[in-house]
Design a protein around this nucleic acid. Structure first.
Lengths: 132, 132
DNA sequence: ATGATATTTCGATAATTTCCGATATATACT
DNA sequence: AGTATATATCGGAAATTATCGAAATATCAT
C-alpha cells in the first residue's frame, strides 16, 4: 500500500468535478457504455468520454470492449477504499445524483442501439431535459 | 441533509490539493496556529493562510482567535461525514502525511513564540523542499 | 467496399487555479 | 506613542483545467 500524496490528490481531483462525480455515481448501478451515460446525463458524448478517461486514469473505472461499444464499470477493488466508499455514500444522497439514476433506469430499459442513435440525434441540438 | 451536487464538488476541490490535504491531516492532531503549520510544513505563512481559508470555506475547519494567534481545528461535526472520515483514514497512510505529523510533534513541543520567530527567519530562504 | 455509428482525440478559447512576495491589518509589548 | 510579530489579503504571471464541435479511429452492417 503506502499511497503517495500526489496519487491521492490526483484521485481527489478526478472526482472534484460535477460531471465526473455524476458519472462515477451512475456506474454504481452497473456497467454502462458511453452513449448510455451521454443519453442519461444529456451531455455530449465527447464530454462523457473525457470524463471516463479521467476516472480511468485515477483507477476508479475499468473498460470492457464489446464490439463498437465500450462498457465502463467501477473497479471493485476500489470500493474497498474508505474515501471512495464514503464519497459514494455521500453522493447517493445528492438529489441530482438520484435523479440521474431514475433517468438511467429508463435508458437501460431500451436496447443500446436505440439509445445511441437517440444521442446522435438529440444531444447537439436539444438541450432541454426531458423532465425528471 | 440533501446536499447539493455543487456543494459536494466544492468540498472535494477544497481537499484536492497537496498543501490543503496536508494541513487538514495535521489538524487531526488537534488545533494548531498558522505559524505552527507553516513551520511544520516549511511553506510560507501566506500559503498556509490561504489553504486554511479554503478549508474554512468548505466547512472543514473552524478558527479560534487568541490574541495575535488564530488556532484552527477540525469541525467535529464534519468528522461524521463518510467522505471526510474515509479521506482522513486514507491520508493517514500516506508517508508524507506521517512525516508531517512527526515534525508537528517537535514543533508543538516548543513554545509558540519561539516557533513563530523561527518561521519568520527560515521560510523565505528555504525553497528546495517545496513540491505541490 | 461503402456507409453507418460508437468512441476517442484534437484544437482552441475561456475560465479557473496556483503560488508567493509584497503589502495591509491586527494585536502585543515597552 | 512606536516596534515587533501573526495573519490576511493583494497582485498578477504561469500553469492547469473545462468545454464541446470537428476530425479521426474503430467496428459493425449490407
Amino acid at each position: 500500500m503506502a499511497e503517495e500524496l500526489r496519487t491521492l490528490v490526483e484521485r481527489l481531483k478526478a472526482v472534484s468535478h460535477p460531471l465526473r462525480l455524476r458519472v462515477l455515481s451512475l456506474l454504481e448501478l452497473g456497467e454502462l457504455c458511453n452513449c448510455q451515460i451521454a443519453e442519461t446525463l444529456q451531455v455530449p458524448a465527447s464530454s462523457v468520454s473525457e470524463a471516463l478517461r479521467e476516472l480511468r486514469r485515477a483507477g476508479f473505472v475499468a473498460e470492457r470492449k464489446d464490439g463498437r461499444w465500450v462498457f465502463m464499470s467501477l473497479v471493485t477493488r476500489e470500493l474497498a477504499s474508505p474515501f471512495l466508499k464514503g464519497l459514494l455514500e455521500e453522493a447517493a444522497a445528492v438529489p441530482e445524483v438520484q435523479q440521474d439514476r431514475v433517468r438511467a433506469q429508463a435508458v437501460t430499459a431500451l436496447a443500446i442501439p436505440v439509445v445511441c442513435s437517440k444521442v446522435q440525434r438529440d444531444a447537439p441540438t436539444e438541450r432541454e431535459a426531458t423532465h425528471v
